[in-house]
């Protein structure tokens, strides 16, 4: 159906979604679960970026940090403070988990901005697994820590009694919508930005519009740099919020 997105008359070719195709790196066979694909490659790059930043960058253990070490320390302090502030002091034990998610998303988002690259976080399969992971972890932690009284999260005792069942229904629905919005927000943001860049790039095929299109791509690219960071931040901070709900379910 995507072929129908091409506007046949003008000669412009729009393939905004082609950049998201999962292809095997070697050969042309079918994509099995173990196949080494461009997903593998770019995820490996994001692992390398994390290692470069947090392991190689801090290997000198300097008291007065170098540039790369101070960036690594900044990331550590940023996420640590976020966990402490949003989820509470007793959530510090889950800090490595949130740090893992944050660092992976940040690196994958920024690597996705490299031209000709593949954005792993623009795939709903990827973000949905992370969001479901957060959702299941949080629910399990909630029931493990508080047992049955975790359900008081849905029973708002400060509301008037007749309203409570309705509010409980809304709360339950919103609780189960969490992983959906959590995953689609990240994937949608990344997909939208990259698709828009591709659409503007396709307009550059007309010589008159080309300068305007280059300007537009530059502007969108700048916005995307911002969005890349903010979406990783939002993903991490929402994880913290959900964790706080699990650790302190009583409003």
């Amino acid at each position: 159906m995507a072929s129908e997105a091409n506007s046949e008359g003008t000669g412009l070719v729009f393939h905004p979604m082609d950049q998201f195709i999962v292809k095997p790196l070697f050969g042309d066979g079918p994509v099995m679960w173990y196949t080494v694909t461009n997903v593998t490659l770019w995820m490996a790059f994001s692992v390398a970026a994390v290692v470069l930043l947090l392991v190689v960058g801090t290997s000198r253990r300097a008291i007065v940090p170098s540039r790369s070490q101070s960036i690594g320390e900044l990331a550590y302090g940023f996420v640590y403070k976020m966990v402490e502030d949003v989820a509470g002091k007793d959530a510090v034990g889950y800090f490595p988990y949130i740090m893992t998610l944050f660092m992976f998303i940040v690196c994958a988002n920024f690597l996705g901005l490299v031209p000709m690259s593949f954005t792993t976080t623009s795939h709903i399969a990827v973000t949905a697994v992370m969001a479901m992971g957060v959702f299941l972890t949080v629910t399990v932690i909630g029931f493990f820590k508080h047992g049955f009284s975790f359900l008081s999260l849905f029973w708002i005792s400060s509301a008037p009694l007749p309203l409570r069942p309705i509010l409980a229904l809304i709360e339950i629905i919103s609780y189960f919508v969490r992983p959906v919005s959590h995953s689609i927000r990240l994937a949608g943001n990344m997909m939208a930005g990259h698709a828009v860049i591709k659409v503007f790039a396709a307009f550059a095929g007309i010589a008159v519009i080309a300068p305007l299109s280059v300007l537009a791509i530059t502007a969108i690219y700048a916005l995307e740099i911002l969005v890349s960071f903010i979406q990783a931040y939002v993903f991490a901070i929402l994880t913290c919020v959900y964790l706080k709900d699990a650790l302190h379910p009583h409003h």
Partner: peptide, 16 residues
């Protein structure tokens, strides 16, 4: 942080 959470919720619906 609260502002960013609010932005995220408002933006999610647009993304939908």
């Amino acid at each position: 942080a609260t502002m960013f959470i609010g932005i995220a919720f408002a933006e999610a619906l647009g993304i939908f």
